[in-house]
């Protein structure tokens, strides 16, 4: 099957600053994303995520290499009939109302008035802006702008939706709304490509992730395999346990801390968790919480950067 996105040796050098110093924004990126995948493009700020997305959407041009969408080069304008795009921190014409803006976007696709009316009603429903659709965009909050941005990205019923940091700057409620919409799209079998620097966003949505650091792709795969080998410290908090009972569990834990009214046991091997839990139950120890501690994305980024420097 033709991949939804295929990136071959994509390289972008950017001249910036007063002296026009050349900076490598993206070096030799290779990536292939099958249709129907929800792909999370992870990396710290300035890693090259937005650069990649701009190259995919035709907002800038590669220094070398190429990008194909559904088998056609991105410079082919007809490719964009199948794409929906939400830029980072989007800003739209603030003198238009939400509905007017969506009509404008529909006209860019050459949609008839009837088709637009039908589609826009549905989209406004989907992004939950029914009450605010008639208001000027200058009165919209950040979260509302992000949602109208999603609506405009979906106006053409795209096969591929590219979202640049769709959840940045949103409050937890806003994040959930945006996440739900992405999950809805995923459920419809669309390909979703989105960038983020927050791991938890990716965890809840993605089938696959790619990690990019300092302009080059570090690893691609599903989130579990990429992150699991390093995620196995588990903290078990217990309460109402006697000194003698504690000595039974202690050898299994790598460390034991005294917490209020109890202890926190830390185990490094998830495999012994069932054994520990069975033991705790047998001793009638009250289990307060079990928290798996995984490496954060920041840890991974730091590790990658350290790895590159050494």
């Amino acid at each position: 099957m033709t991949p939804a996105i295929e990136i071959k040796h994509l390289t972008k050098k950017i001249r910036s600053g007063f002296l026009m110093k050349e900076v490598m924004a993206l070096s030799d990126l290779n990536l292939s994303i099958p249709p129907g995948t929800a792909f999370g493009f992870l990396g710290p700020n300035g890693a090259g995520k937005t650069t990649t997305i701009k190259l995919l959407t035709g907002l800038s041009f590669p220094t070398s290499g190429e990008a194909l969408i559904f088998g056609r080069p991105v410079s082919d304008i007809s490719v964009r009939m199948k794409i929906g795009f939400l830029p980072e921190r989007p800003y739209f014409y603030d003198y238009l109302s939400g509905t007017e803006y969506l009509h404008f976007c529909g006209e860019l696709f050459g949609m008839t008035r009837a088709a637009r009316n039908k589609k826009i009603t549905k989209l406004i429903e989907l992004v939950g802006l029914k009450e605010k659709a008639g208001e000027q965009l200058r009165k919209y909050s950040k979260g509302m702008l992000q949602r109208i941005g999603l609506a405009q990205a979906l106006i053409n019923d795209p096969e591929l939706i590219i979202l640049d940091e769709p959840m940045s700057g949103l409050d937890p409620m806003g994040r959930k709304q945006v996440r739900d919409i992405i999950l809805h799209l995923k459920g419809q079998g669309k390909t979703v490509f989105f960038s983020t620097h927050v791991l938890s966003d990716a965890e809840m949505i993605c089938d696959q992730v790619g990690i990019i650091v300092q302009g080059s792709l570090q690893s691609v795969g599903d989130l579990e395999t990429l992150l699991s080998p390093k995620t196995c410290s588990i903290e078990v908090s217990i309460k109402g346990v006697s000194e003698s009972a504690l000595s039974l569990f202690k050898p299994m834990a790598s460390s034991t801390k005294i917490a209020d009214e109890g202890y926190v046991l830390r185990i490094d091997d998830a495999g012994i968790l069932p054994k520990l839990l069975a033991l705790l139950q047998a001793e009638k120890v009250q289990i307060v919480s079990i928290i798996p501690h995984r490496e954060t994305l920041e840890d991974i980024f730091m590790e990658e950067i350290r790895g590159r420097q050494s």
Partner: peptide, 14 residues
């Protein structure tokens, strides 16, 4: 400057 052109050019607009 306000990047309103970004979503526009990502559509089939020359």
């Amino acid at each position: 400057e306000k990047r309103t052109i970004h979503p526009l050019l990502a559509k089939p607009v020359r």
